[in-house]
């Protein structure tokens, strides 16, 4: 699917649709800024992890979770500008082939949170083509909201990692994550069954 034919959707709406489909304590990693703000706003879950820095590392962090817990599906939400910073991670993921990893790219063509400046990729590059070229053949643009939900459903039983790219509007994130990194990490580990609360 060419990016030009895709509907322009909304990050919070798409995130809420994803969360509503999660029935098996799937892990979700929110990237820097808006992706984790909207993940927070969609309703905190114990299996959510919110990044407060480390721009570009949502997919690598999710890869680590996916390698540690191969029986759990792991989602990662990443902005287009963030992904541009760490394109090599796509090849790492392609070579390791964790089938339980599902990457969602929120593509607004801008660094929304820092003042909506266009990214260098905005008018020249195609994220799905980059992902396919990096070895992630199971990558697709979501044509609209229904198509996104269909792609999520397919990813739940995929036999290779999935990447879903979504064209979104220029709206900021809806919520504001509580910036308490130790508590975020600790509660995430409880949510993944790695630790018990004190």
């Amino acid at each position: 699917m060419n990016t030009r034919n895709t509907k322009v959707m909304n990050r919070f709406d798409i995130t809420s649709r994803l969360i509503a489909r999660l029935k098996h304590e799937e892990a979700v990693i929110g990237g820097i800024g808006n992706t984790n703000f909207d993940l927070w706003a969609a309703g905190h879950r114990p299996q959510n992890f919110y990044m407060l820095g480390s721009m570009g590392l949502a997919f690598p962090i999710a890869l680590g979770v996916a390698l540690a817990q191969p029986d759990r599906r792991v989602f990662a939400l990443e902005g287009d500008g963030s992904l541009l910073m760490q394109l090599g991670a796509l090849s790492t993921i392609a070579s390791l082939k964790p089938k339980n990893l599902i990457m969602v790219v929120m593509d607004n063509g801008i660094y929304q949170i820092t003042g909506a400046q266009p990214t260098p990729a905005a008018s020249v590059a195609d994220i799905v083509a980059i992902a396919v070229g990096s070895g992630l053949s199971n990558s697709a643009w979501a044509a609209d909201e229904e198509d996104f939900e269909r792609l999520v459903e397919a990813a739940m039983s995929a036999t290779e990692p999935s990447l879903i790219a979504v064209r979104i509007d220029d709206k900021p994130g809806v919520g504001t994550t509580r910036r308490d990194p130790v508590q975020i990490r600790e509660r995430f580990m409880h949510g993944l069954g790695v630790r018990e609360p004190l």
């Binding site: 570009g56 690598p60 540690a68 090599g88 991670a89 790492t92």
Partner: peptide, 22 residues
Amino acid sequence: TFATAREEEAVGIVSGAWMGGR
């Protein structure tokens, strides 16, 4: 054992793995 494209990517991976119990 595997190569990553950048060192910070590797840090992200082992951080995620730690939280997942590995």
